[in-house]
Amino acid sequence: MDPKTLRLFYEPRDRLRLTIGTERSYPTVKPVWAAPLSRPGRYLVLLDGKGEEITMIANPKEALPPESWAAVQEELRRRYLTATVTAVLHAKVEFGATYWSVETDRGRRDFVTQNLQENALWLSDHHLLLLDVDGNRFEIPDLRALDSTSQRYIAAIL
């Protein structure tokens, strides 16, 4: 399937629709990343209303028509509530729980993590995903990009 023939748009205003060329149309489309952590921005899968795959696009940013890519990005932004940490303001281990206070792309947030062996996932040497006690996700794509204070907090805890 040629991604250029895909047209994604909101109709009605909160439902993402997909038409493929002139032959097919899906009233509800759910975009999901196949490997959001290891291959961010690549391998986008479009699912239909029943959760069946319609197609997978290896490089959506280049392959999709610009308006469609914009619509998909909007939907992805709504579906992926993972927060990207831009700075660690405070972090402290106390009695087995770790209390974090972070600045993220979605604003400031305080959260608690427990059992860091399982809930701090190292996706590579510098890529970290923290899962808090409720299952909320906090991603640090590149530790080296954080300021030195943030790095110190993380180094002290992990």
Binding site: P12, D14, R15, R78, R79, Y80, L81, T82, N136, R137
Partner: peptide, 16 residues
């Protein structure tokens, strides 16, 4: 959703 959820209502006309 990933890392959260969303409250959705379905209207009588079937719109989500």
């Amino acid at each position: 959703l990933v890392g959260g959820g969303r409250l959705e209502v379905t209207t009588k006309s079937g719109e989500i």
